[in-house]
Simulated scan of single mutants.
Amino acid sequence: MKKIKICLISDTVFDVNGVSRFIQDFSKEAIFFEKEFTVITSTSKGTEEEFPNIVNFKPIFRMRMPFYKSLDLVLPPFFKIKKKIKELKPDLLHISTPGTVGLCALISAKLLKIPVAGIYHTDFPAYMYKNTKNAFVRWGTIKFLKLFYSPYKALFSRSDEYFKTLKEQLGFVDEEIYLLKAGINIESFDKSFKDETIWDPYNFDKNRFKVLYVGRISVEKNVHKLLDIWQKGKFENCQLILVGDKELNKEIKDESITYLGRKRGKELSKVYASSDCFIFPSTTDTLGQVVMEAMSSALPVIVTNKGGPKTFVNSDFGYIVDINNYDEVIKAINELSNDKEEYLAKKEKAYLFMRDMSISHSFLDFWQKNEEILEKLRSLK
């Protein structure tokens, strides 16, 4: 089979979120497996690591993204992006975000006659509705996405939970939808990173049962509901730990709740491994990479009955709950914090489950499926 070149375009590459970590990990895997894979973005943000196959163009203008304050909305340099794509001569252009950088790539692909595919990372219609509570905004978002994705020859989903959405909302057919095998960097998230001294700067008893959440502290992630549940449950000997950018206006004053702010790299790995369980109240994530990072760190998990995480979480190592049913969530936390035998069993099973979910498996699956997509497109010429 002919060697292929893939260029991936994304609005988020150096941000502190699961999608950025996913793209950075894929970039490393491409180098390791000697694949011709280049990422293009436009951001004023940087990273401590060097990525020889990530090209970042300084934006002409930037501002905070409405409803997503930790992301920038940028005006990217269109002609520089188009010139770079032309220079790379990719067989396939992968556009992973429907933002301004993604739009530049889409126009460039049309002008340069390069086929387009992509990855559906976020349920944007649900995301926008969560933030605005406006059905018209949700309808408008669906219409925009349908138009944006209409030139795509293939679309990857990170869980089969969203296959129906891609067909009904975006107009894709079964033959155009591909499942991207779930995977994370299991070497970066492992129980070996456990380090109780990481809690020394914080004012709580380290012996308390530590319930961790990682992600944006925001409405669309349902963190406001988690906080309400926590205060209603009055959990004894438990500490809720929140990691991520705080976008909620609600002030956190409860002594049993600790807000750590943004964490990354080895410090984040230590926070995961040194916690006791993980809770993820979001219903709009197509996969929930943070859930997998927690499981890889040997944490039992509590996820909701809507969205991507429920497709791989089971009772062996976690709980699937209705986030609107406070009693279900309270029961799950109490069982984990009070039943040591059950807790230890779930902890070990979570860790073992993730041993076969490496980012290498995910990347090679992605590459093979893109080879299939290109073979199919060539056969239609």
Results as ranks from 00 to 15, higher is better:
Thr283Lys: 10
Phe51Ala: 08
Ala154Asp: 02
Asp285Lys: 10
Cys277Gly: 04
Asp15Leu: 08
Phe14Pro: 11
Met357Ser: 04
Arg262Glu: 15
Leu374Gln: 03
Leu92Ile: 13
Leu147Ile: 09
Tyr120Ile: 12
Ile373Trp: 02
Asn131Ser: 13
Asn324Ala: 10
Ile359Cys: 01
Glu196Cys: 04
Leu287Ala: 09
Ile241Phe: 10
Asn134Trp: 08
Val39Asp: 02
Leu352Ala: 06
Leu344Ser: 06
Asp123Phe: 14
Asp123Ile: 12
Cys277Val: 11
Leu145Ser: 02
Ile330Ser: 03
Lys28Ala: 08
Met354Pro: 00
Thr286Ser: 11
Phe51Glu: 06
Lys232Asp: 11
Met295Gln: 06
Phe156Cys: 01
Ile60Val: 14
Lys143Thr: 08
Pro281Leu: 05
Val137Trp: 04
Gly307Ile: 02
Ser282Ile: 12
Tyr319His: 05
Asn207Met: 11
His94Leu: 15
Arg138Gln: 14
Asn185Met: 01
Val313Ser: 01
Ser256Leu: 07
Ile241Tyr: 05
Asn249Gln: 12
Phe32His: 11
Phe163Tyr: 07
Arg158Phe: 03
Lys113Gly: 09
Leu377Asp: 05
Val13Cys: 12
Ala298Ser: 14
Cys238Ala: 12
Glu196His: 05
Glu341Gly: 08
Trp199Gln: 06
Gly288Arg: 09
Trp230Phe: 11
Lys310Ile: 09
Ile333Leu: 08
Pro151Gln: 06
Ile114Asp: 00
Val243Thr: 13
Thr43Glu: 00
Pro77Lys: 13
Cys238Val: 10
Asn222Gln: 09
Val303Ile: 09
Gly102Glu: 05
Asn207Gln: 14
Pro98Thr: 04
